[in-house]
Design a protein around this nucleic acid. Structure first.
Lengths: 293, 293
DNA sequence: GTGAATCTGAAAAAATCTCTTCACTCCGCC
DNA sequence: GGCGGAGTGAAGAGATTTTTTCAGATTCAC
């Protein structure tokens, strides 16, 4: 059963006429803000007449334009209201609000800013590199970001062979570089404060023909000079520490992009891994639910 | 300089009259959706007359109600529009959309749902436990969530003494339990699929008088039975894997809650740590910027 | 090519909204 | 107590919006 206005529009899209589709497209184009103005403004914006708007909303099952718009308002409310902030919006934007609210606001803004600056071509290119089973993939992070590198590695290790996690102790890096071949991929996490050794590592790797994918912040790590693909992530938080939430977001999206494109091959790996888990108590024993956690 | 409508209202709040404040409160109560209807609806909703609304918006510097509302629309647009989705909203909610969009939608929903169900008392209680320097804090996670435990640990280690990260190899856990004292805190990450050993560990720890703080998902780990404080986090993502983004969000908020409440003590630790970094190449050498990354 | 059905927008009618006027109330001050 | 100023909402004028009507345009079938 269709619930949101946009759902209703999509479900009934086939039954719409030319001018109505034009209107529907306009509404969905910048949904739901585009439907917030007067019927006149909406009509003008879509390049149709006001009767067309009035007719369509009734055709969609609303009693009139007012009811249609009221539905949009309710949707907006459900979408934007921060549930904790809700019961005390007044205080919520003032200083001294609950940390969770301030964090939620900051992270939402970070996500938005990051996505708006993120080039989908970069994303696709990185995903393509990571799903290429001919290449070995190396992961490395700093003191804080090491956990992110590990998280990424843990997933990729299940999905594909030839994955290696570099410890975040730089003394062990040279041996790894020795093993790297041209075409291999080195995924580096380098958020301020940037670590000198990281740039050195990158330089050495590039000299060996390795392709570098870098996760950094808006101030850009010096590694960027050596990287082929750079993910610039927003990390500001109302905290003494930077936030890795959005970085993790991009990592997870990449994991899924790699996974879904190579599902056939991955499935086999996962089922073998599953059996190993089941068989041996030396490995972690899985619970009953259906996913890897 | 005030920018958003809500800022303007707050800045001028002192200059408002009784009925106007009543209106302002109503507007901020469910900002900005409450300001989306007609001037009549807004007035009715706030329990004031329409002239009061008309007067106030002019007093706030808008030419009329129309201009006032148009500002709200612009704010809403900036707030809700997913920048990538924006240029192709139509496709954005349909299956087959870019992974980044689908992830962004899912994570936003997860964050909202998690926050709405999260008890701030639980949050405060957990933060209070973690900032108590008399207690030792232990962190443990599973195969995937181990990285989150490590991330949490890495920060807490800087902030306070007596923090320990348990490896995610369960064979090493018994020795750790041996060291735990009554009142110590064990932070457990257990997301589906739940690991049997985790519940065993929790049970043993509780028997030793340890307080357990648990991060789990909506299906609740069996550890929940032993935990004093449970964070139930949404993990659904349009992926074969679960999302840890919101879990990390809560962790970061907790870190800040602990950090800010004990800043005086933490500062000293951080500056000592800083000197250690500077002094020895055996440790990671920091970059030039002002934060720990 | 003709006719019927459908679609569309101009225009007018009806409804609603925005804004202004104005009288009343409230409160402090003399 | 009465005066003056500020605040408030009822009422209505004017503007705008929403809805309906209707005639021309378009499409499709035959």
């Amino acid at each position: 059963m269709a619930r949101t206005v946009s759902d209703v529009i999509r479900v009934r899209y086939d039954t719409l006429t030319r001018a109505e589709r034009q209107l529907a497209d306009s509404l969905l184009e910048n949904y739901p803000v585009s439907g917030l103005g007067s019927i006149t403004a909406v009509a003008e914006n879509a390049g149709v007449s006001t009767p067309t708007v009035a007719r369509m909303v009734q055709k969609l099952g609303y009693k009139g334009y007012a009811e249609f718009q009221s539905h949009l308002h309710q949707e907006l409310e459900a979408t934007i209201s921060n549930p904790i902030a809700k019961h005390d919006r007044w205080a919520s934007n003032a200083p001294g609000t609950h940390i969770l609210n301030r964090f939620a606001d900051a992270i939402t803004a970070n996500l938005r800013d990051t996505l708006s600056e993120l080039d989908t071509a970069t994303f696709e290119a990185a995903a393509t590199l990571l799903r290429d089973r001919e290449r070995s993939i190396y992961f490395v992070g700093g003191r804080i970001t090491g956990s992110l590198a590990e998280y990424f590695f843990t997933h990729m290790q299940v999905i594909r062979p030839k994955t290696t996690l570099l410890s975040n102790n730089s003394s062990a890096w040279p041996q790894h570089v020795l093993n790297m071949r041209a075409g291999d991929v080195l995924v580096i996490f380098d958020i301020r404060r940037y670590e000198q050794e990281m740039a050195t590592l990158a330089e050495a790797a590039v000299a060996a023909g390795v392709v570098i994918v870098l996760f950094t912040d808006a101030w850009r790590s010096p590694v960027a000079a050596h990287a082929r693909h750079v993910f610039e992530v927003r990390i500001e938080a109302p905290s003494a520490w930077d936030s890795s939430v959005v970085t993790l977001f991009v990592v997870e999206a990449l994991i899924e992009a790699v996974q879904s494109a190579t599902w056939e091959e991955t499935r086999e790996r996962m089922s073998v891994l599953e059996q190993l888990f089941e068989r041996s108590r030396l490995f972690r024993r899985p619970g009953r639910n259906g996913r890897a956690g």
